[in-house]
């Protein structure tokens, strides 16, 4: 065919090249470089020499108490926010799927948190969850469910909780939209068949809806897991890692080590471990998806 001709091949490459170059230079090269940096001594004091250092950076990371603290924080954040936003998003989608009027209005409003930038949303949440803030006043003086101001932002799990609530609040809209699209593709006759079998609403959900949207659930799982480990701006804005790095996550801690103490080698090693783990996790999840397709 015509595509085989020399000329066309040159044109194809010309079309590919600009994108590939940018991509290779600013994304692929840094990944490779990251690995190399993680094997070098790259502190402020050895800025110019960058001697090869073997696995010393990795050793330092794994022997560091704070690393394990922030590691647990990231795991907890992901384990709670991912199912949290998926469940609420799916529930909202199911509610929306059954109504006709105002469906678009609800959808637009519920999606607004997604388009709100992380910096702004984090500051709003920080303001609301202030010890002297509106929420504590509401809980204590109006509802009476607490008997003092809760120190949300001052403790390890308090700070992480606020970040998690923000993460869920901001993620529900995205889940709602993709689940709504998935729900609309579940064949209607399956529901009718289950009606005849005498299934209740819950039965229908388990036997028809969930299998019907399995692909979307896996897709969301992969995307949100990556997003969960990518949490950065909200922690930086809400607690800044305080008190004493106890609310830091993997990335905020990595950033602190690199840009506040100059330990770029340590930061590179931590980043590389993270990238590797997430890569493996995603491959497993992709496999699960492919199995479902076959």
């Amino acid at each position: 065919m015509v595509t085989k001709s020399r000329l066309n091949r040159a044109q194809l490459i010309a079309l590919l090249l600009p994108g590939l170059l940018v991509f290779a230079a600013f994304t692929v090269y840094p990944i490779i470089r990251l690995f190399w940096m993680s094997l070098c001594d790259m502190s402020f004091s050895s800025m110019l020499t960058q001697p090869f250092n073997g696995i010393a950076n990795y050793k330092e990371v794994f022997q560091d108490q704070t690393f394990w603290t922030v590691f647990v924080n990231s795991i907890v954040y992901t384990l709670i926010t991912v199912p949290g936003q998926m469940a609420i998003g799916l529930f909202t989608a199911i509610l929306l799927n059954g109504i006709k009027r105002f469906s678009v209005t609800f959808r637009v409003i519920n999606y607004l948190p997604v388009v709100t930038s992380w910096v702004i949303a984090s500051l709003v949440f920080r303001y609301i969850f202030n010890t002297e803030g509106l929420l504590n006043y509401f809980l204590w003086k109006i509802l009476g469910v607490t008997s003092s101001n809760i120190r949300w932002l001052d403790t390890r799990w308090g700070g992480i909780s606020v970040a998690m609530i923000l993460g869920i609040w901001k993620g529900i809209g995205w889940n709602m939209v993709i689940f709504l699209a998935a729900l609309q593709q579940v064949p209607q006759d399956l529901y009718e068949a289950s009606d005849i079998d005498g299934c209740g609403a819950w039965g229908k959900f388990i036997h028809v809806t969930l299998p019907g949207i399995k692909g979307t659930i896996l897709f969301a799982l992969i995307e949100l897991t990556i997003g969960g480990f990518n949490v950065f701006t909200s922690i930086k804005m809400i607690t800044g890692g305080k008190p004493a790095h106890q609310t830091d996550t993997l990335l905020t801690w990595m950033y602190y080590k690199a840009f506040s103490t100059g330990k770029f080698g340590y930061a590179a090693a931590l980043s590389f471990v993270m990238a590797l783990c997430l890569g493996l996790l995603a491959i497993v999840q992709f496999r699960m998806m492919r199995n479902r397709d076959n």
Binding site: F23, F26, T27, F229, Y255, A258
Partner: peptide
């Protein structure tokens, strides 16, 4: 690259 969180590359990108 879609799998790796963007911020993990901030150190080599900064060097670049």
């Amino acid at each position: 690259t879609m799998i790796i969180p963007g911020t993990t590359m901030i150190v080599p990108q900064f060097e670049l």
